[in-house]
């Protein structure tokens, strides 16, 4: 596994696209953090259904998440697009090692990106004359939830790319699901209200807001279930299909 992680580290760090996308993700996070700072005192802003009143968690905004998801999708997307998968499996014939190694390196990079976005937002807040109090459990909880959401979102992009062998589908499908869910919600709200809490983005909203509704399944469990389902199907497909 160590060799696979080294392989993945060298793969990720030796292409320009990784740095371009990371920079774009950070710049969007900085932009959103600045925007939140400007309008924060007016009651917060809602983008993509996710409350974004805290500048420090701007790294999980939809635009930054999409750039980060593109990096995640490239883990398998480039393998198939540039026919590298044969070379990779020629070095690491155990496919579980390849899948897990790529997943771990993807999560590491996303974690570093998220940490950088938080640090950048911090600098923006301080530069703008704002103040951030000492550690408080609400802030820490929000940071963890946003970071987890970003990791899950990127994980889904990663898994869909491995499943479909298409980087574009890996990036676009989670976005398309978000749009589809708006339609699905309106169609299902009356005939099947019990179903709507299990839609992924509805669960994401509940999870990110940190609000607990005893009548509904916890947002984190629904999100985790969707991510686990997609990842399992994706892994089995990678494991048993021809390369």
């Amino acid at each position: 596994m160590t060799s696979m992680l080294l392989y993945e580290w060298r793969r990720v760090t030796t292409i320009r696209a990784t740095y371009v996308l990371s920079t774009l993700s950070l710049l969007s996070a900085a932009g959103v953090a600045w925007l939140r700072l400007q309008v924060g005192e007016q009651g917060g802003v809602i983008i993509g259904g996710i409350p974004i009143d805290n500048p420090l968690v701007a790294g999980a905004n939809p635009l930054s998440a999409t750039f980060a998801a593109t990096i995640a999708a490239a883990a398998f997307g480039h393998e198939y697009r540039y026919r590298l998968v044969g070379v990779t499996l020629g070095e690491f014939p155990r496919r579980a090692v390849v899948y897990v190694g790529k997943g771990l390196m993807m999560l590491l990079w996303i974690a570093m990106l998220y940490a950088a976005s938080v640090a950048l937002a911090w600098v923006i807040v301080i530069s703008a004359g704002g103040t951030i109090g000492g550690p408080d459990s609400a802030l820490v909880g929000q940071l963890i939830r946003s970071g987890s959401f970003l990791a899950g979102y990127c994980g889904v992009a990663f898994a869909i790319t491995a499943l479909t062998r298409s980087l574009i589908l890996g990036v676009v499908t989670p976005l398309a699901v978000t749009i589809f869910e708006v339609v699905a919600w309106s169609l299902l709200e009356e005939p099947a209200p019990w179903l709507t809490p299990y839609l992924p983005m509805a669960a994401a909203n509940r999870f990110l807001s940190g609000e607990a509704d005893p009548t509904q399944a916890p947002g984190w469990s629904v999100l985790l279930g969707w991510t686990a389902l997609i990842t399992t199907v994706s892994y089995l497909s990678f494991r048993f299909r021809d390369a």
């Binding site: 696979m4 392989y7 060298r10 030796t14 320009r16 026919r83």
Partner: peptide, 24 residues
């Protein structure tokens, strides 16, 4: 094994490509 002449990322320098493949 060398089964496909064009199995490399066009944006990754040749030396970096080989460094990556040397990881195992």
């Amino acid at each position: 094994a060398h089964l496909d002449a064009k199995s490399f990322h066009p944006g990754r320098p040749a030396r970096a490509h080989l460094r990556m493949l040397g990881s195992e």
